[in-house]
């Protein structure tokens, strides 16, 4: 069983604070972490590899040199090999150019039975790279999966849909994107595993190593262009309603009635 798992380094958006005076992001002291959905994908990769009786998990991350730390983390969780896709020519990639870069790297790294991704990254929240990557690799996709098992050469995955969930089956190779189940507690690898992870193979690949065309990757290969980044319009401070529960209820009913809610 060979599994490729795509991981991204993201700022811990739960730690991002907005400067109340200027309305801009305060990035100082915000830790960089592995995207939580990707952490689940790595842990599932390890479980599936072991259930299949062994194999190889290749963790792949595209990002600046600092993103190496999420690969070390993935190796400590049990991945066997890491590939860091880092090149200034990859920078500024939209989801299409990102998926294209990952597809080139995965093809270069050999044949895979499974390609696993987090459903979305918590900094961009697009959920587009997984399906785009599946199409570029020419394999089927099952998105928004919270549970998966193997059945011979097939995977059986529980996919969350708008109405509830579906149990889907597909022959490998297939790409899955993971949503974390509510009872998921991410493992924190102990120091011994982190130090062992440092000895596992971890390569850095650039445009040359993935046989990429610099005109088709990064900012140049992107179809969409960010023209402006700004703070969302700030809400006025909440109006606090005071009094006895009955007084508050009357005030609130006035407001909700005026807005036509009943």
């Amino acid at each position: 069983m060979r599994i490729a798992v795509c991981v991204k380094q993201v700022p811990d958006t739960t730690e991002v604070k907005v400067d109340p005076r200027t309305g801009t992001l305060i990035r100082e002291g915000v830790p960089s972490i592995i995207n939580p959905f990707d952490q689940y994908a790595v842990e599932e990769a390890v479980r599936l590899r072991d259930a299949a009786g062994g194999g190889e998990i290749v963790a792949i991350s595209m990002g600046p040199p600092q993103a190496r730390s999420v690969l070390i983390h993935s190796l400590a969780l049990g991945a066997d090999r890491g590939i860091l896709l880092s090149d200034r020519g990859f920078a500024g990639a939209d989801t299409w150019a990102t998926a294209l870069t990952l597809a080139l790297a995965i093809k270069k790294a050999g044949e895979f039975d499974l390609v696993l991704c987090g459903m979305q990254a918590i900094d961009g929240d697009t959920a587009q790279v997984g399906p785009e990557l599946a199409q570029l690799l020419g394999i089927p996709q099952i998105t928004c999966v919270d549970k998966v098992d193997l059945d011979g050469k097939k995977v059986v995955a529980r996919k969350l849909v708008d109405e509830g969930f579906e149990v889907l089956e597909a022959k490998m190779p297939v790409l899955l994107t993971f949503m974390t189940p509510s009872d998921f507690v991410p493992s924190n690898p102990p120091f011994s595993k982190i130090s062992k992870a440092q000895k596992k193979p971890l390569e850095t690949w650039g445009i040359k190593e993935v046989d990429g065309d610099p005109e088709k990757l990064g900012l140049k290969g992107s179809f969409t262009t960010v023209t402006k980044v700004y703070s969302p319009p700030r809400r006025e401070k909440a109006v606090m309603l005071e009094g006895s529960p009955e007084e508050i209820a009357r005030k609130l009913a006035d407001i909700l009635g005026k807005e036509g809610f009943f």
Binding site: L25, D123, V226, T227
Partner: peptide, 13 residues
């Protein structure tokens, strides 16, 4: 929105 809704981005194609 991006960054968990902390920033907004305008995008063109």
């Amino acid at each position: 929105p991006a960054f968990g809704g902390n920033i907004m981005a305008d995008i063109l194609c």
